[in-house]
Design a protein around this nucleic acid. Structure first.
Length: 590
RNA sequence: GGAGCUGUAGUGUAGCGGUGAACAUGCCGGCCUGUCAAGCCGGAGAUCGCGGGUUCAAAUCCCGUCAGCUCCGCCA
């Protein structure tokens, strides 16, 4: 009676309902739990669809009952049995299948199991390294399965939508060449070309542009990308992008199609109807009001520029910062006077990591404004500050002075930090926003040169072209990011499609003509054979799934993620290799 | 590269200079016919991450190191 010969699964455990009562079913799954009452055994049998209670009764079927005594957690069973209504008073309202149970007429142990290192159930309270080492067990848990299933449905919704809009899925090489700019590449040594290396793609950027030159017109790919940089809660060294490119479109058309895609994904996966079109903010406005280019619009607490109000202040720090071309900005934590001195001191430490030299606070109380700098502020200044920050009794004003970049960084992060700390972020809101009109370039102080803010293939806004030489930092890009609840979901641009402009762009970035020819010669040459105007976008698919599943960590939406230090605790990767393998690759350890 | 938090039976935690390292759960055995976190009785299970130092004495204090996590830098 061992083996599964002759039995075929007829139902999913978790799907059985009152309607199925009287049916003979064959279930296969794992033992979630066994409750042995001596004369009666209950087994919670789990498969992907859920859990159902199996009853082993010596009166109903003695052999199954006897075999059930050796069953343990995570054994794999086949059960043939009769679906029955549960007796009065034994219904379990916490279980989808709680109205019914299955009386076993046959029990086969398809496989045994060692006692698992942790209990396989919905919520888990186990250290991450244990979960990662036994990932195959962690993935048995219903909430992890739910995440992977949601991921599947999201990918399907994307494919359905793009296919219906005429986009063609094309695979591009994983073994390609290293390019300057951008993240550190993962390199793959070549056996056949001694001393040469492939690089794993950071994104299929150049290939998708070449596909436009090839006349594909509309391309997409759910593409694995690789970046050899340090990890974060939402960053893994390999991750997945929804990569999209289209010809003969302008920015407006592209954004519209992408909004449609998001709407379809959220409709199909979450059954949520997104209001279209999404609002837009210019990069400049986002930075001014939120201190970041990925603002979380689920709550207010916006940054307010008070530089003009305090320019003449007795408080020397403010005056000198404004005179030196810096800014003084603030935000209003409504009801924030309840924060203790200690908590406020912690905030000072928090903004320090973004370069803020200090954090000025003003408590608005019934007796006026209470602040360490109160004596330096005229009554007029205090009143103006309260007015412009819309402060009322009980509010706490927090000000940072410094270079614009530092002020934005500090207050932008502080805004989020405070919102999280004080529970200001409403649940269930989906605030999409397009950020547009990015600068084309940003100055790299370390390397003393301009860097492409998006990437070197991004087209400038046409009216700004003439500024490229005279005032490069003022040139706007035809680039855009989609932000949801403060998470950068994706970004893209309209591309340069003329050789001359691309060469000019490389020159502006300090890439020599020789280097451009060597690294990107194929692209420049391709531009000369009738390149259509085109543009595209790429979305971080893992982050999208995080938002769809409410996951706080990217590991929870990946089947086999890496640790923060880039290792795999399951397989032990990365690992040493045989000397022989190194020889083949013309490599040696140093 | 930097900062912080955490490492104690399989798992989750307590203990924070001095008794045989405790509790819960899981595991093993026994009893038990309506449980669903089953219950009751009994039992086994720990180089206190690793190395060094201080001390009469270290899980506990100090230094270093490793691992996991979070953040900064980095991520066009």
């Amino acid at each position: 009676m061992k083996g599964k010969k002759g039995l075929r699964r007829s139902h999913g455990c978790g799907l059985l309902r009152q309607d199925d009562v009287g049916q003979e079913v064959i279930l296969m799954g794992w033992v979630q739990r066994r409750r042995d009452h001596g004369g009666l055994i209950f087994i919670d049998l789990r498969d992907r669809s859920g859990v159902v209670q199996v009853v082993l009764s010596p009166e109903y079927h003695l052999e199954s009952f006897q075999r059930g005594e050796e069953v343990r957690s995570e054994f794999v069973l086949a059960i043939k049995g009769l679906v029955s209504s549960r007796p009065e008073g034994t219904i379990n309202p916490n279980l989808g299948t709680g109205d019914v149970e299955v009386y076993a007429q046959e029990l086969r142990i398809l496989n045994r199991s060692k006692t698992p290192p942790f209990y396989i159930k919905e919520e888990v309270n186990v250290e991450e390294n244990v979960r990662l080492k036994y990932r195959y067990l962690d993935l048995r848990r219903p909430d992890m399965q739910r995440n992977l299933i949601t991921r599947h449905w999201a990918a399907k919704a994307v494919r359905d939508y793009l296919s219906q809009e005429g986009f063609i899925e094309v695979e591009t090489p994983m073994l390609t060449r290293s390019t300057p700019e951008g993240a550190r590449d993962f390199l793959v040594p070549s056996r056949q070309s001694p001393g040469n290396f492939y690089a794993l793609p950071q994104s299929p950027q150049l290939f998708k542009q070449l596909l436009m030159i090839s006349g594909l017109e509309r391309y997409y790919q759910i593409a694995r990308c690789f970046r050899d940089e340090d990890l974060r809660a939402d960053r893994q060294p390999e991750f997945t992008q929804i990569d999209i490119e289209m010809s003969f479109c302008d920015q407006e058309e592209l954004l519209g199609i992408m909004e449609g895609m998001m709407a379809q994904v959220f409709a199909q996966v979450m059954d949520v109807e997104l209001p279209l079109p999404f609002p837009r903010l210019s990069y400049r406005e986002a930075m001014a009001r939120f201190g970041t280019d990925k603002p979380d619009l689920r709550f207010g607490m916006e940054l307010v520029d008070v530089s003009a109000l305090v320019a003449q202040s007795e408080f020397k720090v403010f005056r000198s910062v404004v005179e030196g071309g810096g800014q003084v900005k603030g935000l209003n934590l409504i009801g924030g006077t309840s924060l203790t001195r200690r908590e406020i001191d912690e905030l000072t430490g928090y903004v320090a990591q973004f370069g803020a030299r200090g954090l000025v606070w003003l408590r608005v109380t019934g007796d006026g404004v209470n602040s360490p700098i109160a004596k330096f502020l005229s009554p007029r200044e205090k009143e103006d500050l309260c007015n412009i920050l819309k402060a009322q009794e009980g509010d706490l004003l927090l000000l940072v002075a410094g270079p614009a970049r530092v002020v934005a960084d500090s207050l932008g992060h502080l805004r989020l930090h405070l919102a999280e700390k004080t529970g200001l972020i409403p649940e269930g809101k989906l605030n999409f926003v397009w950020i547009v009109d990015f600068p084309l370039l940003e100055w790299d102080e370390e390397e003393k040169r301009y860097r492409a803010m998006h990437h070197p293939f991004t087209s400038p806004v046409e009216e700004d072209l003439e500024l490229l030489q005279s005032a490069p930092e003022q040139v706007r890009a035809q680039a855009y990011d989609l932000v949801l609840n403060g998470v950068e979901l994706g970004g893209g641009s309209m591309r340069i499609y003329k050789r001359e402009l691309q060469e000019k762009m490389f020159a502006t970035l300090g890439i020599t003509a020789a280097e451009a020819r060597e690294k990107f010669g194929f692209l420049l040459e391709a531009f000369e054979y009738g390149t259509p105007p085109h543009g595209g976008i790429a979305f971080g698919f893992d982050r999208l799934v995080m938002l769809l599943t409410g996951s706080e960590n990217i590991r929870d939406v990946l089947a086999f993620p890496k640790t923060t230090s880039g290792t795999c605790l399951l397989t032990g990767a990365p690992a040493t290799v045989e000397e022989r393998q190194l020889r083949d690759l013309h490599l040696k350890n140093i």
